[in-house]
């Protein structure tokens, strides 16, 4: 039987409730909607990693940063790329230092002891994943663009994502002192394996509706007037309806608003749009299409 709503409030380090998540994220400048706030709260409450997917520039990485700011945690970031390996993601032995240590010992010390000496914390270079696990303070671990890595790295992540522990053959298993708030982001350029997905909560971030986007623009760009923000969001909305190669994202709306503020354009008319179109649309065919469909006189 599922009992509604009885949980131990004191144990939750992160957010107390979905509403609490929404308020605190708003306070640090990240405007959420119900799914985002609920999922962010659940990630903390269930202590499970969160997989964020969505088009580029909708604020996936930003969410991780906002969670860190809202909860006064430190953000540890692992940027993934093709060819990322254990030595860059987890830990590495500082072999130069180990060599020095061996050379520095006098011959009287036997091998057993040297062996025990050189495989200690002193010679361990911790990389983001291990760092995040060993920290005793609240930590947000951001694993950015997981889809860029090779499939082998996913295997590496599995142990961390499910048990929050890392096994180092020479030292034994390091378990998390305090479970970090893990966020993985992906542009879905590759389908992640079922095993990873099963261990994570999932949230698909998409372009926000006009009202929320306007709020975002207003909160991010201080100098922009309410009217211009409204026009801008509406124009962006119309552009997203066109079939473009790359639809403008939130990041581009914000950039656009900044551009308008910098150029001191107080009214978003056709001429202004045409002049600044390059900020929003970054393919020639997209620009041509927008000019034609939005009836901008060139």
């Amino acid at each position: 039987m599922i009992r509604p709503y009885d949980r131990d409030v004191s144990t939750s380090t992160w957010f107390q409730s979905p509403d609490d998540a929404a308020t605190r994220l708003n306070a640090v400048g990240y405007l959420t909607d119900t799914p985002t706030a609920t999922t962010a709260y659940l990630t903390g409450a269930l202590e499970k990693p969160l997989l964020l997917e969505g088009p580029a520039g909708v604020g996936k990485t930003e969410l991780a940063k906002a969670v860190a700011r809202a909860t006064d945690a430190e953000l540890i970031r692992l940027q993934c790329y093709e060819g990322l390996d254990e030595a860059r993601a987890l830990y590495e032995w500082n072999y130069k230092k180990q060599l020095l240590r061996i050379q520095a010992t006098d011959t009287s010390q036997d091998w057993e002891q040297t062996h025990d000496d050189i495989f200690t914390d002193e010679f361990l270079l911790t990389r983001p994943l291990l760092t995040a696990i060993r920290r005793t303070e609240p930590t947000v671990l951001l694993i950015d663009e997981v889809d860029k890595t090779d499939v082998e790295v996913e295997g590496l992540l599995l142990e961390i994502l499910s048990d929050f522990q890392v096994t180092i053959p020479e030292m034994g298993t390091v378990s998390a002192v305090r479970k970090p708030f893990v966020i993985l982001t992906s542009n879905a350029s590759r389908e992640l394996s079922e095993a990873v997905k099963r261990r994570c909560l999932y949230l698909h971030l998409d372009y926000p509706d006009a009202k929320r986007e306007k709020e975002i623009v207003l909160s991010q760009v201080p100098g922009v007037s309410d009217k211009v923000a409204g026009q801008l969001v509406e124009t962006i909305g119309r552009m997203r309806d066109l079939e473009l190669k790359k639809s403008p994202s939130i990041a581009e709306s914000v950039d656009w608003a900044r551009t308008l503020v910098a150029l001191q354009i107080g009214k978003l008319d056709d001429a202004a749009i045409t002049r600044t179109l390059g900020v929003v649309l970054k393919h020639r065919s997209d620009q041509e299409r927008a000019v034609r469909e939005l009836k901008l006189g060139r």
Binding site: I2, R3, P4, Y5, D6, R7, S17, P18, T38, Y41, L42, A45, L46, K48, L201
Partner: peptide
Amino acid sequence: DAARALTHIEL
């Protein structure tokens, strides 16, 4: 997970 998550929220 889903069932556990439901216990954490108000329904």
